[in-house]
């Protein structure tokens, strides 16, 4: 089984802080990590490989330093890695990003299943996974929390909903986006880390993936950011004190209108 897992390198949100004076993001010392949701996709891809055989290819679009995310993916069990990187991709919105990744996947050619995290922690759009499947015109199942069965032809999966979950059967090839509940990602292994150190991820440019120039980057993106600003920070309010009973009574009174 040929498995492709799409990942994104994002700033570690644990490190993201707001400068209280200038009200801007402090980025000094912010580490880049694999998008936390993609870690579940990588783990699931490796588990499918362990179950069914085959290989896992990690794919990312990003700046040259995104190669580090690919090395980490290899240390976690991916077999091959491809970095799609070109200045022409700068300014891509989710439309252009999913187009670029789908063009890279077309170049890879042979695949049975594509896995993505349900969304990235920096953009939070959840649009790129479904976007890729739309560009490739293959079936998708989003928010997958369990793969019940998988064979060369079919997968039976549980798709998380607001109320519970759906059980969906999909033919392969298909694209799945996964949620945290699907697995607990393993720790990297030393042998994997050593393999990652010497691995040479493939580097593809816009020309390599034979992408239409007009569909790339800022020019290929229907949406444009016109303003970025820091939201008003929520301020801490009143600290209540007194005996437990007093505090409970006072709070009940304060919240009366909200709960009735």
């Amino acid at each position: 089984m040929n498995i492709i897992v799409c990942i994104k390198q994002v700033p570690n949100t644990t490190d993201v802080r707001i400068d209280p004076v200038t009200n801007t993001l402090i980025r000094d010392g912010v580490e880049s990590v694999i998008n936390p949701f993609d870690a579940y996709a990588i783990e699931e891809a490796v588990r499918i490989k362990e179950r069914c055989g085959g290989k896992v290819t990690a794919l990312t679009m990003g700046p040259p330093q995104a190669e580090n995310a690919l090395r980490e993916a290899i240390s976690l069990g991916c077999d091959e890695a491809i970095l799609v990187s070109d200045r022409k991709f700068a300014g891509s919105d989710t439309w252009a990003t999913s187009y670029t990744l789908s063009a890279a996947i077309r170049k890879i050619g042979d695949f049975d299943i594509i896995l993505c995290g349900k969304q990235a922690s920096d953009g939070d759009t959840a649009q790129v996974g479904p976007g890729i499947s739309a560009h490739l015109d293959i079936p998708q199942v989003t928010y997958v929390k369990k793969i019940e069965e998988i064979s060369d032809k079919l997968a039976k999966v549980e798709r998380m909903t607001e109320e519970g979950y759906d059980i969906v059967q999909t033919p392969l090839p298909c694209l799945l986006t996964v949620v945290k509940e699907i697995n607990t990602p393993r720790m990297p292994s030393l042998k994997g880390m050593m393999r990652a150190k010497s691995a040479k991820p493939l580097k593809w440019t816009a020309d390599d993936i034979e992408a239409a120039p007009a569909a790339l980057g800022l020019d290929g993106s229907p949406t444009r950011v016109v303003k970025i600003f820091t939201p008003q920070q929520r301020k801490g309010g009143e600290m209540m004190s007194g005996s437990t009973e007093d505090v409970a009574r006072e709070l009940t009174e304060l919240l009366k209108d909200m709960v009735i």
Binding site: I18, P222, R224, F229, T230
Partner: peptide, 13 residues
């Protein structure tokens, strides 16, 4: 919101 609500972005098409 973007970056986990740390910044806001206004976007047009």
């Amino acid at each position: 919101p973007a970056f986990g609500g740390n910044i806001m972005a206004t976007i047009i098409t």
